[in-house]
């Protein structure tokens, strides 16, 4: 019923994705949020150009220098300096690379694995389904953070290890969605038609079913990206973050919390940065969901 509601929103005669895009573009807050996300991504890419200083340049004489509007601050270091006298603004700009990289890499890998496993389980059924579903059940039995902490303890800290530690569990989420969708799609006419003309299982899964469920998966993935960025921050809090001197927002908040009373700016600005990016991703993904996956629309 809501499906009808949403398709009437678009102009008739246009392809569905164009209609969806129109719905999305009509949602001003989602559009604004997407712009913010794009801005962050752009910032990450051109970080070396826009960062006023080398993010790893330490000078203990600038230790905990306040932001420019506070006494003792100066324009060279607008947002102040951290415990080693590094420029917080530059570290924030470079830190966007880490948050975005981890968010994107984890979700990308997890989604690809999740789609393949989910398609196989949902379409092939039988023992493939049993095995995959059991693995999914087992992984779901672990609390996410504890699982990631355990893996990080096993592999040691570092950027790649964080991505791996999160992917190992994250793929389960798209997998469950894809499996459910595939089970439903399997009984649809277009799949039966393909089977009747002798298309291979691989072809049916990837060419027939996948395009039809992709929007649902994409919507889930964007929401999960927000979650993954917060997970990285949590791992940093527990001392399992990226290796120095890499600037990561989670690491900056975690490292600065010791100074929160004496030098609030050290952890507050990266905290706000996480909040802003995650918020933007969440708002944008909600707009995506409303537009592209109308079953959840309001």
């Amino acid at each position: 019923m809501t499906v009808i509601a949403s398709s009437t929103a678009g102009a008739p005669g246009l392809p569905i994705w164009r209609q969806n895009l129109r719905v999305f573009c009509a949602n001003k807050s989602a559009l604004f949020a997407s712009a913010v996300v794009v801005l962050f991504v752009a910032m990450a890419i051109i970080a070396p150009i826009i960062a006023p200083h080398d993010p790893n340049d330490t000078d203990l004489f600038r230790r905990l220098q306040p932001p420019v509007w506070k006494e003792g601050g100066d324009w060279a270091y607008i947002l102040g300096c951290d415990a080693l006298g590094r420029d917080i603004l530059s570290r924030l700009i470079y830190g966007s690379r880490i948050s975005i990289f981890i968010g994107a890499a984890v979700v990308l890998f997890a989604t690809v694995i999740g789609i393949l496993a989910g398609l196989a389980a949902g379409y092939l059924r039988g023992w493939v389904d049993v095995v995959i579903s059991r693995i999914v059940d087992i992984l779901l039995g672990f609390p996410y953070l504890i699982f990631a902490i355990g893996l990080m303890a096993m592999m040691g800290p570092g950027l790649v290890n964080i991505v791996l530690a999160l992917v190992y569990k994250e793929w389960v989420i798209p997998c469950r969605v894809v499996r459910g969708e595939t089970l439903a799609a399997r009984e649809q006419e277009y799949v039966e038609a393909a089977r009747a003309v002798g298309a291979s299982s691989g072809h049916i899964m990837l060419r027939e079913i996948l395009p039809n469920i992709l929007s649902a998966v994409t919507v889930i993935s964007t929401v999960r990206m927000a979650n993954v960025i917060i997970m990285e921050a949590s791992l940093s809090f527990l001392g399992l973050g990226v290796q120095p001197p890499t600037a990561s927002w989670g690491e900056m908040v975690a490292g600065g919390r010791e100074f929160i009373m004496e030098a609030w700016w050290v952890s507050t600005f990266p905290g706000l940065a996480i909040l802003a990016l995650v918020l933007a991703i969440n708002v944008a993904s909600q707009g995506l969901r409303d537009a592209f996956d109308p079953r959840f629309a309001e």
Binding site: I230, A233, V253, G271, I274, L275, L279
Partner: peptide
Amino acid sequence: SLVGVSMPGFWLGILLIMIFAV
């Protein structure tokens, strides 16, 4: 609700302590 899910828990906790406890 969106701010709620976007806030790292440890940061929120420390902020609450600073405001409401200290």
